[in-house]
Design a binder for these strands. Sequence first.
DNA 1: TCGCTCGATAAAATTTCTTTATGGACGTAA
DNA 2: TTACGTCCATAAAGAAATTTTATCGAGCGA
Lengths: 295, 295
Amino acid sequence: MDVTLKGLRAFLAIARHRSFTRAAGLLHVTQPALTVQIRQLEVALGLRLLDRTPQGVEPTAAGLELARVLEVQLRDLDHTLENVRDLAARRRGTVRLAALPSVASSLLPSAMLRMRERHPELRVQLQEAVTGRIHDMVRAEMVDIGIASGPPPGPDLAREPLFQDHLLAILPADHPLASRRRIPLEALARESLLLLESNTSVWRVLDDAFAAKGLRLTPFQQAVHTSTLVGMAQAGLGIALLPSTAVELRIAPELARRRLQPDLAREIVVVHRTGRSLSPAAAALIDALRESVAA
Amino acid sequence: MDVTLKGLRAFLAIARHRSFTRAAGLLHVTQPALTVQIRQLEVALGLRLLDRTPQGVEPTAAGLELARVLEVQLRDLDHTLENVRDLAARRRGTVRLAALPSVASSLLPSAMLRMRERHPELRVQLQEAVTGRIHDMVRAEMVDIGIASGPPPGPDLAREPLFQDHLLAILPADHPLASRRRIPLEALARESLLLLESNTSVWRVLDDAFAAKGLRLTPFQQAVHTSTLVGMAQAGLGIALLPSTAVELRIAPELARRRLQPDLAREIVVVHRTGRSLSPAAAALIDALRESVAA
DNA sequence: TCGCTCGATAAAATTTCTTTATGGACGTAA
DNA sequence: TTACGTCCATAAAGAAATTTTATCGAGCGA
């Protein structure tokens, strides 16, 4: 026979209300159930905890001592359990997120807004990085989830698709190519190109597509920040090739945006360790991301 | 579905050993039992606590947090339960005792010695008092048990007989009555009597017996301390009437000790509140008292 | 690819718990 | 004093839960 939480709670209720019958009512069980529970507890502890008299129940010295300590300890335990339930109910928690800068500046803000509406207590710890670094951080458990592009390398990372991020050519509205709905790679190859650095997924997608056509990708200029490239395009230095998520596009309305021919896109995916479950907070963020994508 | 101690302990064992199978071995159950326990716990808390992978078990963030807190709280709870078991096993505890001075000086020391041999950690809190006061103290729960004489007054006090304490006449060896094996009350009535005070049970027993014979109890001298009366008897001032438990008798070998005719005795009993159980420590003391009586 | 380890699952057996029904002790009121 | 009400204990039946046995499927390493 074993000490059980139920037995201890029954004991506390009876000790507090000085009555088996009343405690039974409060605990929504019948009185004999409590009689049995207390007997088991007393057997398990080896002594009498409650003196039963027709005019009520009186804890013994041992029972009184136990009740006093137990009251505190069970309250603490319940508090602990409630804290865990708070995590489950998304009333508490933090997602550690590594995201592509482009996503972090475009999709993520609206998703976080959405998440805050539903679960105001959840927090996001954001780190911006390129896809390779994101994979590393997820693998090393430095973050809970990543938002990166393309399929992850090893089998230890699982992906869930979020959306297609089309590659756009950014060019002055009066540029000859601006008249085309879609701009062929062959035409691009003859222009001065403004590109992000070569460790980015944009570069990789573009490089693959050029190579498939036997073309050479020779950028006129490379930069870390999309705003740099947008500025250069505005000045007429060339054609910038940027993902549609680059937020700077929205604030440069005088530039034309065109898809390529063939249409190039990188798949934006949520990445997490296979076999490791998502925390409720992480799931909430992913939900919010999907809703923002759908909107 | 409910959170149970068993489930929490199972969770801790698995989290600590990173394996269902190993934990099952340590807990002496089979592995499926733990699988079910953890599933119930996870359902009760609403989230996943352990990520199961073929190469072992990894707690989730929530599981890690829970394990850390739970480790402390369950240890505290176990400590509490162990403390109660210590009371039961007589490894800890105090008896509050009110006893007649005569018993406190005669029977009690040997009983306490006996008790200390068996249960060295138990303590006795002794208060000396006369029977009436002892009853009051037991009733008021100022003490756990009393050692008094005669049957207790109300139905709220229960008694358990310990032994018969014979009333002895203490007189100089050369006193004429010293030649009798038993001294008749009628003879005593003509002597100068040395008695304890009139609120004592000795007085009451004697008074009743005299009255039953139509005799008047008129003491020559009264005192609080038996040693006073023994001293007076030694000096030849009269015949002292004392309970056999009066320890001073042993250190005055030149005085004769005689029972009365009829033999008068008071019954020494252990008194405690009816309906209230004895603490293990109190039971241990009563055991020791009985053994000392039997010895 | 085979064999091994590990956890999940299903069904059966067992244990445990709860309820229903009833009993006994005590106190109260007529 | 007797009838009645309250309160806890007990027993038996029923319900619920846990555990075991047996087996499966996934991943890892040789």
